[in-house]
Each structure stands twice: as structure tokens, then as C-alpha cells.
Design a protein around this nucleic acid. Structure first.
Length: 109
DNA sequence: ACATTGACAATTA
DNA sequence: TTAATTGCCAATG
């Protein structure tokens, strides 16, 4: 991550996502808006073509209704990963969504 | 709750 | 290269 100007859309999504710490989540919408775009679905696509599950915690991205959304390894896996980070989920929905969701992510320079 | 419409990058043809 | 298709979505009807 040196020359941000040469990062493509996907890579920018990943950079934004790195701002989200364990135990918290964000939404596809928030990421798109941090990129000054409405490409919500494109953000999801970026996650889907899987970069690196280790430094790109795609499981911390949920949809704007506080539901899990989809996941490359299946939504049950996503739930497990989130619960392992202390995120409570009830019937596919984050219990304290409003508390732990980062809605305004900072754009990259 | 379901269907439609809108937006958009990457992939595929 | 351009056109069509796809997709971990969102807002609206």
C-alpha cells in the first residue's frame, strides 16, 4: 500500500476495510461511500473475488439492514467468524448493529 | 415481505 | 474493443 493512486477499485475496498477492527463491522454502503461511489454491489464483488482472507476481513462487512449478507465461505461461516470476535447475532441479524457498525469510514488520501 | 429499478466494476463472450 | 452478464447491494414501490 504505497501508491494509492494506482489502486483499482477492488484494492481500495480492501484498504478501507482494514479500518474496521475486530469486534466491529461496516456495510457495503459505507465502503462505497468512502470511495465516493454508489457501487454497493461492486464492493461485494470485490470481496467475493477474494483477496486474502487473513488481512482482508470480508466477514466484517454486512448489509445495511444489519443482516449478514453473503459470504464466499457461506453465511454460517461468516456468522461464526463474527461471533468469534464477539459480535452477537440472532436469526441472521446483528443484535447490536447500531453500536458496532462503523458508518463513516474515511476515504484514503 | 416481495418485486422492481438503479448503480457500477469485473468478467466473459 | 465493445456489448452483455454477473454479483457478499440499496432504495423504492
Amino acid at each position: 500500500m504505497k501508491h494509492l493512486s494506482k489502486l483499482n477499485f477492488d484494492q481500495r475496498c480492501y484498504e478501507i476495510l482494514k479500518q474496521v477492527p475486530a469486534g466491529k463491522v461496516t456495510t457495503y454502503k459505507a465502503i462505497a461511500e468512502a470511495l465516493n461511489s454508489k457501487a454497493y454491489q461492486a464492493v461485494g464483488n470485490a470481496m467475493n473475488r477474494n483477496p486474502n482472507l487473513i488481512d482482508t476481513p470480508c466477514h466484517r462487512v454486512v448489509n445495511s439492514r444489519g443482516e449478514l449478507g453473503n459470504y464466499v465461505l457461506g453465511c454460517e461461516k461468516k456468522r461464526q467468524r463474527l461471533e468469534a470476535e464477539g459480535v452477537l447475532i440472532e436469526n441472521g441479524r446483528l443484535v447490536n448493529f447500531d453500536e458496532i457498525c462503523l458508518t463513516s469510514l474515511k476515504p484514503l488520501s
